[in-house]
Every structure is written in structure tokens, then in C-alpha cells.
Amino acid sequence: MADTAILTPAPASRPPATTKVKGLPRVRVGGRAGWTVIAMIVLIAVWAAAVALFSPKSYILPSPWTVGKRLWTSREQLIRNGGPTIKEILEGYVIGVLIAVPLGMVIVASKWLNRLLYPLLIAFNSIPKVALAPLFVVWWGYGETPRIVITFSIAFFPVLVNTVTGLGGVDPEMVRLARSMGAPKRRVFVRVRLPQALPSIFAGMKVATSLAVIGGIIGEFVASDKGWGYLLIQAQGQLDTSLIFAIIVLLAVFATILYYVVEFIERLTIPWHSSQRQN
């Protein structure tokens, strides 16, 4: 068959990637980090120019230089208060993910729980969690518990909803294929539904990172005698704007790192997904 050569893709022209280490995809940070740095420099330059041009009072808008100095001079105070904040955010976030993902699985796996629990959870999600903060303080006092619970309750829902939609959105033909191979329901779940839902679950987890940071700060606004959120309220009372800015910078940095840590885990977990392909 002379035409075979034309019609069959010639493997020789596309040799398999020999350098690829299985399970450890190349992580290209250089390019994106470079752009991030440029964007930051531009932002700071615009900020500095605005301050130089309009010379606002320093309690309205301090210069980037002032904020940078403040980060250094108040470093002890900032570090001391950062510890509890970061701990609460991470705890609330991790607990949220650890409960939301299995709960989502159970909701999808059980028709009754789906009917019973899911509408309830959606209704609960529509409550602004900030409104619950005072209640949590009444229940758990001024310790870190109410703050972790607030963080948890905000970070929890996007993960849950994305888990449920991801698991439910599996191509029914995929399921039929697995069944034609003789897979029992449980194996279809583990081998087909779950892997196919992972991109959606990770998307929810990434959204939840910034929400967790919000939750942590709100928790400290309402009930705390330490942490960055508490410090923000203190600084506000004293019109200490440069301290406010210093904390905002730290929060932004922390939230960004948290996001990229989750994205890094995602890249290791689902290198096959379209969002993670590097070609």
C-alpha cells in the first residue's frame, strides 16, 4: 500500500520527548515572573509620580518610599502580628479544602444527600459571611477559633461548588465507556469522575485562596487583639496611613504566594490539563 506512508503519521518526524521526567513537568516561572516584576515597577512608578506631582498629605497617600521605610522600621511589629494572621488564614483554608472536597464527593455520589444538603449549602453560601462574624465571636469568644471559622466559611464554598460541578459534569459517554469495560460504580468514580473533576476543583481552590485572606482579615477586624487585621484597625484610629499601606503590601504578597503555591500543586497534579500545557 503505497499511500500508507502518507496517511500514517511518521513517528520518526516526531520523536518522543526523551527529556521529560514523568510526573515532574517543567515549571517555567522565568517568563511570567519577569512580566510581574515589570508590572510592579510600573505601578510603583505611577504611584511615586502621583505623590510627587500632587503632593497629597502623607496621611492620605504616603509615597512608596515612605511605605518601604515603614516596612523596615516596623518590621518587628509586622512580623509579630503576621504570624497569627497567616496561621489563621492557612488553617481556615486547609480545613475548608479538606472538608469541601470530600463533602462535594459525597453530595455527588449520593442522590439523597444531593437533594437534601446541596440546596441548604447554596442557601448558606448566599449569606454574607461577614454578617456571621459577630455570631461566631459570641459562640467562641475572642480566641483564634472564630477567626479560623470565618476564614473557613468563606473559603469553603467555591471549593465545594466547584467539586460538585466538576464531578457532575463528566461526559456520560466516558462513564458508558468505563462501564463497557466492566468497571463498578465506585471505580468509575475514582478512575473517571475524579480525575476529570480535578481541574474544576483546583479552579475553586485558587479562587478560595484570596477569599481565605479576606476571611482572615475580617475575622481580626471583628475579634482580635493581634494580627494584621487588628493592626489595620489600630493604624486607622491613629491615621497611621503608612502602616496601613505596609500591611496591604504584605497581604498582597502573601495572597499572591498562596495562590501560586496552589497553582504549583495544580501543575504537579494535572500536567495533562489544557490550562497547564506549555506548548
Binding site: 459517554e173 466516558m174 458508558r176 463497557s180 476529570q196 490539563h273
Partner: peptide, 11 residues
Amino acid sequence: VVFQKDLLFDW
């Protein structure tokens, strides 16, 4: 069984 869609698992 082979279906119209290839139904390969991306992962």
C-alpha cells in the same frame, strides 16, 4: 467497544 468519540482519558 469502540465509540464514535475516542473518549481517551486526558490524564
